[in-house]
Design a protein around this nucleic acid. Structure first.
Lengths: 355, 355
DNA sequence: GTGAAAGCGCTAACAC
DNA sequence: GTGTTAGCGCTTTCAC
């Protein structure tokens, strides 16, 4: 490997001069700079970033720690983050914690020891990064979810608000019996969803007997099973609307509905809580609550960049940026069937009277 | 930050001893080792991996360079790779080249300068890594696609074979007019697909007038547009089967078919060339050629690990490992409609005669 | 068993 | 303008 010293020897100057020339230090004479550039080129010299990192205490790495890559929520964020950071010469080091707090801590610890310049983190527990390592000395930005960690920025959507919003939407359509199929309890986002669900029930005077959250592990089989259970009860106790809080719940619903010959939204309404590309392609297209991945990622990346600029020490305050998602209304939702049947009966009755 | 020297000072020994003790050198006395461990713990010492990397000429980073994160082909590979590498203490540094050869070269160059220990690469051009940098001195494993690069391992599926396979499947169903909607020409995988398409046409005596490849950029709008064009021609010139070579082509087909009221597979058959999770959920479920992501990723990771072991210098040969995908037959494909209509006519004719 | 010293390849403070 | 020197924090000869 060609080193700085090799170039220096070839040119006949000191390593420092080469370093300066190559880094655009204007004090080095034009002619010498040119000569050095040429020689470096000729020898195929490329600066060893490892050595430079050690010296400058800056690596150009950003750790991005997310739950997994099987959910398009996270792959979208990762994708946009990478796109935003890469023009700034920052490289993404990936970590997946799979909602395992211990693994999360390990990964973060390891990244800190590797001296990443900053961290983007989807926390999996309430504590977030607190207790994992205190005073880590680099910017940390939580994305997607917000934990109670003290010294981190956050760019997130409050999933409690999100689910409330969905519940409101369903209630406005006339639904009173709503079931949400969600992930494992204890996961930060899932718990937020549950909170939003409970809050909506209270605020809209829905019945706790008729509305509930079914937690099931994130695989289609378990979701299908949970759903089958639900639909094995007498039909008049069925929920009129289901919220599938993750894409697997939605897949499971669509498959079970099809196998039972149930029609969306006539027999039951279905709302998602993420926006997989295929929701729009499905037949019928699935109404869903869309999180603003792109906006969040871009803002998070900008914030990160700004944190990395050693600005004239502004007492840069902690930033907590709350985004709202929005409902994309499509054809999988409508007024509840029972209401419709009732009104059909009433219309029939009215017609009879009129005759 | 606590350094080795801090611990050494606290214990009253040299930095070398601390280093040895912490790295499990058995020559250090048991008691001293224990003492050092304790003290390191107490001071919260964590080895600076950057310094260690510089010294050992090994970083524990693996560069994974893929086209993007919007295609589940690549996110799946990335996901499995990360899962496989992380237990070995290897971290993934992500790079996305978006099928841009210049960007690809830049990323790889940058990763080399950062001294990643190995590279996993989805090449985007025929040359692959050749010419980008020669003699890079670290293992490179191509995944998904194989380029003509000289000194790299490859774990891949031959997409020419894959498309041939799909064509055979369609021809067996009776299709003679087949259109493939594929990505941009010049992209390694796309060109392979085209080759397979052409080869199948020749081998199965299909007509070049009736079978063609439509290249369109990877977005749904352009794909829809291309498809609309196709369907605007007289119906008897329509293809009886369409191969959607990427997920956006499939989405586009499903949406256009729905808007035109076309039924799958009665009006037209549709086959995918990737296996997005939702293909199975779609109505009807989409027949597709599935690439063995998981197997490829695991094998690639294993190979990488083995390359990283400084084994008793076996003259470790270059490995080229060819995987085959397989067709998942679902309900979006069937015999061509024209054949059916014809046979209906023939049956009717036969009945008439019988009367 | 342990320490002293060298050095991975670079940058930055200090001289002149 | 340029060279000398001193590290960044670690591992690893080499000596004893």
């Amino acid at each position: 490997m060609t080193t700085l010293r090799d170039v220096a020897n070839a040119v006949g100057c000191s390593a420092a001069t080469v370093s300066r020339a190559l880094n655009g230090d204007t004090r080095i004479s034009k002619s010498r700079t040119l000569l050095i550039r040429e020689e470096a080129n000729r020898l195929g010299y490329q600066a060893n970033q490892l050595a430079r990192s050690l010296r400058k205490q800056k690596t150009g790495y950003v750790g991005v720690v997310i739950p997994n890559l099987t959910n398009n929520y996270y792959t979208n964020c990762l994708s946009h983050l990478s796109d935003q950071l890469s023009p700034h010469g920052l490289h993404v080091v990936l970590g997946c914690h799979n909602f395992d707090a211990a693994k999360d801590a390990n990964i973060i610890n390891s990244l800190i020891n590797r001296k990443v310049d900053a961290l983007v983190h989807v926390p999996c527990t309430k504590q977030g990064i607190d207790g994992v390592i205190d005073n880590l000395g680099i910017p940390v930005i939580e994305i997607g979810q917000r934990s109670s960690s003290a010294n981190v920025d956050a760019v997130y959507v409050d999933d409690a608000d999100g689910i409330s919003h969905v519940m409101q939407y369903l209630a406005d359509l006339g639904h009173r019996r709503i079931v949400m199929i969600a992930g494992r309890q204890g996961v930060l986002g899932v718990d937020a969803q549950s909170r939003g669900f409970a809050r909506a029930i209270a605020e809209m005077n829905l019945s706790l007997d008729e509305c509930k959250v079914v937690h099931c592990p994130a695989n289609r089989h378990d979701c299908s099973h949970a759903l089958e259970n639900l639909l094995d009860s007498p039909r008049d106790s069925w929920p009129t609307a289901i919220i599938g809080a993750h894409h697997l719940a939605i897949s499971a619903c669509l498959m079970v509905f099809r196998s039972r010959g149930l029609q969306l939204p006539n027999d039951i309404s279905l709302v998602g809580f993420s926006n997989d590309e295929w929701f729009e392609v499905s037949n019928p297209p699935v109404t869903t609550y869309e999180h603003p991945f792109r906006a969040m990622s871009i803002v998070a990346a900008q914030l990160l960049i700004s944190r990395l600029q050693p600005l004239p020490d502004q007492p840069s305050k902690r930033e907590i940026i709350n985004f709202d998602g929005k409902i994309l209304e499509r054809l999988s939702t409508g007024p509840p069937a029972i209401a419709k049947r009732k009104s059909t009966f009433e219309i029939g009755h009215a017609l009879n009277l009129a005759q």
